[in-house]
């Protein structure tokens, strides 16, 4: 499942996307994130899944645009730390940051 956490407003798409089929719940990204946006827990969107999965903390979902901005997702010299750390390639950001701040 592609879990899109975040929002869309007049200026763009601001989502941190988790591919739950790739996520193994290792939790390394939660430690890599400098602003503590991620957590590991039960899959809220698939009640039949037994393995834990990474997700964006509830209180962060409406402010992801600002929380993630410090890592310059999609346009920094390197990918965001959560993306770098994830060995299974389960995390990525939508285009909002890149389109608005990248140029």
């Amino acid at each position: 499942m592609l879990a899109n956490y975040g929002f869309q407003d007049g200026s763009g798409d601001w989502f941190l996307v988790i591919d739950t089929d790739k996520c193994d719940g290792c939790g390394k990204c939660t430690e890599a994130c400098p602003v503590n946006v991620l957590e590991v827990g039960p899959d809220e969107y698939d009640p039949f899944r037994e393995e834990p999965v990474v997700k964006v903390r509830e209180e962060e979902r409406k402010k992801i645009r600002y929380s993630c901005a410090s890592c310059r997702p999609g346009y920094g010299e390197k990918p965001a730390p959560c993306v770098i750390t994830c060995e299974t390639g389960a995390i990525f950001h939508s285009e909002g940051w890149k389109l608005l701040y990248g140029k």
Partner: peptide, 15 residues
Amino acid sequence: GKVIKFMMNDKCAAG
């Protein structure tokens, strides 16, 4: 009926 992709918007009243 299993979710394979989703997004939610509850931050902005538009839409």
